[in-house]
Design a protein around this nucleic acid. Sequence first.
RNA 1: GGUCCGUUCGUCUAGCCAGGUCAGGACGCCAGGUUUUCAUCCUGGUAACACGGGUUCAAAUCCCGUACGGACUACCA
Length: 510
Amino acid sequence: MNQKNIRVRFAPSPTGPLHIGGVRTALYNYLFAKKNGGKFILRIEDTDQTRFVPGAEDYILEAFDWCGIEFDEGVSKGGPFGPYKQSERKNLYKAYADELIAKGYAYYAFDTAEELAHLRKQYEAEKKTFTYNAAVRQNLNNSLALPAEKTQRLLDDKTPYVIRFKMPDDRMVRMNDLIRGAVEVNADVLDDKILFKSDGMPTYHLANVVDDHLMEISHVIRGEEWLPSMPLHILLYEAFGWEAPEFAHLPLLLKPDGKGKLSKRDGDRLGFPVFPLQWRDPKTGETTRGYREDGYFPEAFINMLALLGWNPGDEREIFSLDELAEVFSIERVGKSGSRFDPEKARWFNHQYMMKMDDEDLADLFLPVLVEKGYMTDRDFIVEVIGLVKDRAHFVHELWEQSDFFFKAPDEFDPKAVKKRWKTNSYDQINELKEVLTAIDDFSSENVEAVVKAWIEEKEYGLGAVLNAFRLVIVGALKGPHLFDIVALLGQEETLRRLEIGLHELGRKES
RNA sequence: GGUCCGUUCGUCUAGCCAGGUCAGGACGCCAGGUUUUCAUCCUGGUAACACGGGUUCAAAUCCCGUACGGACUACCA
C-alpha cells in the first residue's frame, strides 16, 4: 500500500548524436517503468547554451522512435509536468537557488573564472589540489567572507556572480545505490559546487534536482559517471527538505579492445557504429554511421543493448521489447563495465534475420533491388528470400547471397572454373540441356530426381556434374540447394544459362 | 594527486546477498557431421574465479590488504 508512483526519466543534453550508452540508459529506464507500471519521461537538459547543437534534439527523438522506445511524457509529447525542456523552465530555478541562500545552504561567489583558474594552477605547482570548500572559502571573494554591505553593493552594481552550495565540512553522507548498495562519502572532500551560473542558468546539479522533484521522479537511473555527484544531490534534497528519489548508477559501456569507455573513435577505428542513427555534424559536415543505416533491425539492436550489462538470470538471450519489459529488474544489472562486442551485435541481427517473415524482408529488400536495377515480381522475391535469408546477417547481404536469382552470371569464378570445369564438363552439360528440355514438371523435387537418375544411368560422377551445373547457373560454387534454384528460375531461364555457360566456358582441352 | 566504483573463459555473463555441484550458458575460435558447393545448421572441443592474507571442516562466494582498471575532480552535462 501507499507505494509511491513509479516515475523515471531520461534526461539527455542536446549536444550531438545520442551515444549507444545513452540509448541503453534510456532503455533500462523504459523497461523499469514498464515493468513497474510507471511513467517514463523525456526531459531535455539544455542549460548549457554554449554547447547547443542544432538537430541534436530531433536526432534523439528520431532515435527512440526507431528503437520503439516510447515516452509517456516529455518534449514533443507533453504532459502534466511540463515544460520538459530546461531552457523553457529557465525562470523557475533562480527562486530555488535564492531559497537555499536564505536558508544558509548556499552563497554568492564573485570570483571570476580566471581567478579560479589561476588558483588551481598555483595549487598544482605545489602539488596540491584546489578545492573550493570550507577550508578556503573564507579567503575568497564570496558572500560568506565579505561583509554584508560589500556583498549587497556588488549585487547592486550587477557584478557577475554565481551561487555555490555550501558544502558541510564535517559530515558523512550515507547513501544507497540500487545497483551498488551502500555508499558513503565524507562531505569534506567535496567542493562547493556551482548551482547557478553567472549567465542566469542553473547548472546540471540544481536543475536536475529541482526538476526531478517537481516532476515527482521516483527513481533516478543514470550512468555511472554521475556517481561522484550523488552526495551533492542527496545533500541538495536535504537542504530543500525534499524526499530524495532512489538512485541507480549504471555501469559504463567499454571499448571492444584496450581500455576506457566506448567512444566514437572506436567505431571509426574498428568499423562499427556507436550511434543508433547516422549523424551529420552541422558544423563540419562530417557524417557518422548509425545502426539503422548499417542495416541493423531495431529489435536486434535493442536486444543486444539490453543484454549488455543486464541478464535475465536464465539462459535466454532473444527478447522482444515487451518480453524485456516483463522480465527486467534493476537488481540483475551488473556492477562492472561491459566491453562492447561488435561480433555479438552481428549475431543478434542474424538471429532476427532468420526469424523474420519473408514478406516483411521482401519489403526491406525491394529498395536494394530497385537500386541495382532489378525490379522483379514480388512473389519471386519472397521465394528467393525464403531460400537465402538464413545465410545473411543483414538485408544488404541478401543481394550477394541471391544476385544469381536476378541475373545470369556475367562472370565465372576462376577458381571454381579451374576446380570444376573439367574436360568432359562441356559434353555433360550439353547433354544435361537435353535432359532438362524434356522435363514437363520443373519442380525442385522432380528435376532433382530426373537429373540424378540420368547421372546414375550414364555413370557420371554426381559431384562432377552437379558442380559444373551449379557453376553455369550461379557463376560460383555457392548458394542454396541447386534444384531449388533452378526450379525457381524456371525451365526457360535454366536452359538459357546452360547455353550461356557452354558458350562462355567452352570445351576444355585436356 | 584526491574521492568513489569495479575485477569469473579472448568477449557478454550465471553462480556471490542466504559458503559445500567436474565453475554453467552465449559470442568468437578450433574439429567433426549434414550439404553436389558456399553459408546456415547440428555435435564436440578450447578457455576463467586478478593476487596475497584471514575466518571456516569447507571460500568464486564472507573479511582485510595489494595490484590493475574505470569514472569523477569546469560558471559541461
